[in-house]
Structure formats: structure tokens, C-alpha cells
Amino acid sequence: MATALIIDYGMGNLHSVRRAFEECGAEVLISDDPKDIRKATHIVLPGVGAFHDGMTSLVQSGWCEAVRRESEKEGIPVLGICLGMQLLAEKGHEGRETEGLGLVPGTVEKLIPVSSMTRIPHVGWNEIYRTRENPLFEGIPDGTDFYFVHSYRFVPERQEDAIAMTPYCGEFASAVMHHNVFGVQFHPEKSQKYGFQVIKNFLALN
């Protein structure tokens, strides 16, 4: 059985993430102690909030180093959700420039409205279109709606790391993959049937 370790670094709603992973058949461990990372078969970095606050908290609590080590040396699959996805980047430009985890090459930038009718934050259900076959979106039709709530977007350095795109403010990378590290800008835990499919697909990785 997969043991999903959900990193508790004080940023947001862990309850729904935990319930969703349990529903998808995982054993769940919510932890604020980086030592627990050894017990994990899968690492989940959830979170809502500001890039700088999130990163500061990850660094101070020692998670930063632990996650880098487990994902890079041990090859443990990592899934970043929403802010968690953005923290995988090398740099964030929210408020001030902040160094990220650097697990997926790229930066985080503000969504720029393309018309006076474009609202920021991007809140609600919007489609995803995969750019190539990938294990995370196995069994999920192109054009499926997922639930988003964010004002910033991940800009991958390498185009091939963007595995799904979403049309808003032009278009942005709604999911990234770099080796064993995955990020989704939407909330799979709140995206009902197909959100759960994403979680199950992630848990099937090893």
C-alpha cells in the first residue's frame, strides 16, 4: 500500500487533501517533521498562499532539504498541488523574488489579464489539455474540467516539462512533470471524479 506523506508546513487546507488521498486508497501521514519522510512512498506538497511565506516555512522547518534529497537521490514521486506546484520552481516572483525548491526548472509569474473581462484570481472550473502522453493523466479525457484557484502561473524552462495546458490569460501550464516530480496547478482533491483519478495515477507510480 502506498504511504502518502502530506507535508504540513502551515499553508492551508490539509484536511481535504488527506481525505481525498484516503478515498483513493492511500495510507496517509500528515507530518510537520522532516524525519518522517523516510516512511513515505509518495510525497505530497499541498498548500495555498504566498510563495515567499511558503518557501520560508519549508526552509525553516527543514523540509526543503529533505524533499530534495528523497526526490533526487531516492527517486520518491513528489506531487505539488497549487502553491505546492509553484514551490517546485527555481524562483517565484510573488511580491519579491524568492528561491524555490528547484525540482522543476522554471519560474512562477503573475497571471496577466488579456482583456478587461479577464478576472484574476483564476477561480473555478477550466479545461486541461495534455501536451503529451504521461502517467498522471492516464484515463482522463482531454478537455476535462478541473478546479483552479490561483493568481500565479508556473512557467517551465523546458517546454517538455509542461504536460498539460489550460486556456486562461492566453494559456498556462496546468501540470508539470520532471523525472519523478509532478505539479498540478488545479486542486485534484476538489476536482471530484477526475481529480481522484489524478491522485490514483500518482499513487500508482513507484
Binding site: 499553508m11 492551508g12 495555498v48 498562499g49 504566498a50 511565506d53 502553491l83 484570481p121 477561480v123 484557484v149 490561483h150 493568481s151
Partner: peptide, 8 residues
């Protein structure tokens, strides 16, 4: 908004 993000 500063801490939890304006989206919430």
C-alpha cells in the same frame, strides 16, 4: 491575503 493568498 498576504499569508493565505488572496484566492482564499
Amino acid at each position: 491575503a498576504m499569508h493565505f493568498g488572496s484566492q482564499c
